[in-house]
Nucleic acid binder design. Structure first.
Lengths: 188, 188
DNA sequence: CTTAATATTAGTATCAGGTACTAATTTCAG
DNA sequence: CTGAAATTAGTACCTGATACTAATATTAAG
């Protein structure tokens, strides 16, 4: 007869899932939920290498805090690895689960777009640049785990308008191309 | 002679700013930084109504945790207010400071793009849709505070390919148009 | 049934980063 | 010089833990 109380293994699997889903749960709540003592929960966490509540909260906070910074402060998606102002630039982006559709593992289009747009803006030597017009094509879907390399070239400049072409590759295959017209904004 | 140590008022202003910028700082670090005792820091926080470190971390975590959910779970940017599957859809988006360049108050292009893309996907009656090709134009910059109305129309369907036009307006002025080709993905 | 191994529970000391409170000391302005 | 404001000190207590020891319960095997 299987005991009412679940086996250690089952409990640990469920515990992992539960904490994954609800990172803000305390050991005490877990102990209630699984009907075991708090010490058992702690032994489980120890065995499974799951950090304590406060550490989990901190992780969530820091992860998203830095994400906010990387999107809002630096305003560039991906890592800038080469830059010749007003000429060209290269950035790379390791695609993570964050950027993909959960079911298909296909990277969402707007992240690819953001990568291209932010690189285009980075190569322009102006305090603030604004996407005026973008004409773009996605060619093949990008899958989770693929490393994206974006190359931007300034092809023309007229007054405060810059024409920038951005191509994104996975290895040698082009997965995206876009033409950006960026307008630099004065200090007024 | 102005004293080396800043006045209470100055300290409290700087303290507020510092915690605003670095929410992960402890009272002890603050006490070092300002050259006052830890008790003074605590009195300051009490007077200013600034919660303790752990509460601050929790807030950051919860705020961003829910943001992540709203972006990853619902997977639609803006609020869907009308939907005729495989025909048309309308969504609205109130532009907030989050979406804008801090200096110019111009809404970043990729948010507008995301709004259009996600609406285009929403109107397709398929489990998962993927942006295959998008051809788009930004027409006028969108400013912080303007309400965006996106209208999507399915103009054609061939097999698993859907052709969707999305136009985004501020009041009666069109600010964006895009043609999306979406490909529905099977269950395999 | 007994025994050994495994799993669980109990209990204690300790920690970080605080709150809440009381009291002493320092600073400064009038 | 004096009194109010500001600062510092110190204590007890809180939560959600870790780290560790020890006792008890459960289970599986012989």
């Amino acid at each position: 007869m299987p005991s009412k109380r679940k086996s250690k293994k089952t409990r640990q699997v469920e515990l992992t899932e539960k904490i994954e889903k609800e990172p803000f749960v305390t050991d005490e709540e877990l102990s209630d939920h699984f009907g075991v003592s708090i010490q058992t929960i702690r032994l489980d966490r120890l065995e499974l290498g799951i950090p304590e509540l406060r550490e989990r909260i901190k992780k969530v906070a820091q992860k998203n805090y830095s994400k906010v910074i990387s999107l809002r402060e630096t305003e560039i998606v991906g890592e800038l690895i080469d830059l010749n102002l007003n000429e060209s630039g290269i950035s790379i982006l390791e695609t993570t689960i964050d950027l993909a559709f959960k079911k298909t593992k296909v990277i969402k289009g707007h992240h690819i777009f953001s990568m291209a747009e932010s690189l285009a803006m980075a190569v322009i030597n102006a305090k603030v640049a604004l996407t005026g017009v973008a004409n773009m094509k996605y060619r093949v879907p990008v899958l989770l785990g693929q490393k994206l390399v974006a190359k931007a070239e300034v092809v023309n400049q007229r007054g405060n308008k810059y024409f920038v072409h951005v191509k994104i590759y996975v290895k040698t295959e082009q997965v995206f191309r876009g033409k950006f017209i960026l307008v630099s904004i004065g200090e007024e």
